[in-house]
């Protein structure tokens, strides 16, 4: 859950990412019940059709499944699937923009590696 929504992104996408985040960081475990449409609508003041669109994408992707008359639940294998997706996205987004910024500053790949190593050491 987030305290508020970002007005720069489609809302259904944020709903989808929010649920995905909760699964990846362990707040929502497999077979747990996802928040209900009504809860999300009331909390974020968003259109119910928008919430459903986000949920439906997660159902189509096999992350959530519907229990008739009960609600949405986290599917088995959802965690593993999301982690794989996030890993790929990590490379495409974070690593790409890091290298882009490094290029602007004239930082070599070797220097980046050293920076990562020293960061690791600092973290212990």
């Amino acid at each position: 859950m987030r305290s508020s929504l970002d007005e720069n992104k489609p809302i259904f996408q944020q709903i989808r990412e929010m649920i995905e985040d909760d699964i990846v960081n362990g707040n929502l475990k497999e077979e747990d019940q996802a928040p209900s449409t009504n809860q999300l609508v009331a909390y974020y003041k968003i259109n119910p059709a928008t919430v459903l669109k986000g949920f439906n994408q997660l159902v189509d992707a096999g992350i959530l499944y519907k229990k008739r008359g009960v609600g949405m639940f986290v599917a088995a294998g959802a965690y593993q699937m999301l982690r794989e997706q996030r890993k790929q996205a990590f490379q495409e987004q974070y690593v790409w923009s890091m290298m882009h910024e490094a290029e602007k500053l004239g930082i070599s790949v070797e220097e980046i590696k050293n920076m990562i190593d020293s960061m690791k050491e600092r973290q212990g």
């Binding site: 449409t37 009504n38 609508v41 009331a42 003041k45 968003i46 259109n47 119910p48």
Partner: peptide, 10 residues
Amino acid sequence: FYEEVLNDFM
């Protein structure tokens, strides 16, 4: 007002 519009709409 916004909350009631959404709730009652559902």
